[in-house]
């Protein structure tokens, strides 16, 4: 039964990757590309919250780091886009590990505050130093025309690039799922129940907590690198600390326990403001909508919109009740 569900999701995902870029207009291709990159970061925040109960309020800041590294490498060397992206992911994974160090001693609100302070620090650096645009020097910021951003050979057009980012999102989900099913997943489950019990069972708590933050950072870095490839130019306004808080809030609204909760969070984060803009309504109204949605999630839907969708599916197909766990990421 589980394999049937997975097959259905795989077919749906493949159909979406093929169909969405072909039929979305130019503006929506751009919006969906941004949405996909933020879904990667949201998936990282969601998995960290679900598996270890740890709150990361630095995901969008780490996306900025990923974007910075991708742009820096693009303008400094002639490497293929994928190499730049991988290096960006590696750098943010390392930063994630670094942030994990206080996580070993703190939890709950205090840990969230530490990550928020890290995001605020990145915010200041981005504003002061800006993003590389092809000039010389370490920071690479010039005052004249920005140099070209090389896209992947297979994804030169906007539509192809959207497909490319969607494939990366799938890779991100698969990576999380593989972790969940293997030793780290079992270790995280034990740590979440009781760190003392985990230690007593011989689980290396330091290693696995650091590992989780690293994975979350990797996903955010990949998202930021992909966003840089889409726009060719980044601005500090995109990576404010407040954006990280907003993304985490939407992860809760979307539903952190389910992989498609990250997609819902990213859709709320980027598609809703896009829709409001298209309707001629001030996109800041989305903040009011998000606030109401968060209240709704906290009060009535602890598993978020994804949890409600999952509940509806279970109601419609009672035979799938036993399969509930399979949908969880």
């Amino acid at each position: 039964m589980r394999s049937t569900t997975n097959t259905i999701w795989a077919v749906l995902g493949l159909a979406l990757i093929l169909v969405l870029p072909a039929f979305a207009g130019g503006q929506w291709v751009k919006i969906f590309t941004s949405t996909t990159t933020f879904a990667l970061a949201a998936a990282g925040a969601g998995f960290l919250y679900t598996r270890l109960g740890m709150v990361s309020l630095v995901q969008v800041g780490l996306m900025g780091v990923g974007g910075w590294v991708t742009l820096r490498l693009n303008h400094a060397f002639n490497f293929p886009f994928e190499i730049n992206l991988m290096v960006a992911g590696a750098v943010t994974m390392f930063l994630g590990n670094l942030i994990a160090l206080p996580a070993l001693r703190m939890r709950g609100l205090y840990l969230a505050l530490i990550t928020l302070m890290f995001a605020a620090g990145l915010d200041i650096v981005f504003t002061a130093k800006q993003f590389p645009n092809g000039a010389e020097g370490f920071w690479g910021v010039g005052t004249t025309f920005a140099a070209d951003m090389r896209r992947p050979v297979v994804a030169q057009s906007d539509a192809a690039y959207l497909r490319y980012t969607m494939v990366w999102l799938v890779i991100g989900f698969v990576l999380i799922e593989l972790h969940r099913r293997m030793a780290p997943g079992r270790a995280w489950a034990l740590i979440r129940k009781s760190e003392a019990a985990a230690l007593a069972s011989g689980v290396n708590v330091t290693l696995y907590k650091t590992w989780a933050f690293g994975l979350s950072g990797l996903l955010a870095g990949l998202g930021g690198g992909l966003l840089a490839g889409s726009l060719g130019l980044l601005d500090s306004a995109t990576f404010r600390a407040s954006e990280s808080v907003m993304l985490f809030a939407l992860v809760i609204v979307g539903g952190a326990r389910f992989w498609y909760g990250a997609v819902i969070a990213a859709v709320l984060f980027r598609v809703v403001p896009g829709l409001l803009n298209n309707w001629g309504v001030d996109a800041d109204l989305s903040l009011v909508i998000f606030g109401a949605a968060l209240l709704h999630a906290v009060m009535t839907a602890p598993d978020g919109l994804a949890g409600q969708i999952n509940g509806a599916i279970r109601t419609l197909i009672p035979s799938r009740k036993s399969d509930n766990k399979g949908a969880k990421a």
């Binding site: 130019g26 503006q27 751009k30 726009l231 980044l234 306004a237 803009n277």
Partner: peptide, 11 residues
Amino acid sequence: NPELASQAASK
């Protein structure tokens, strides 16, 4: 916002 600028031009 660069993202919105890019979306607006594509539209």
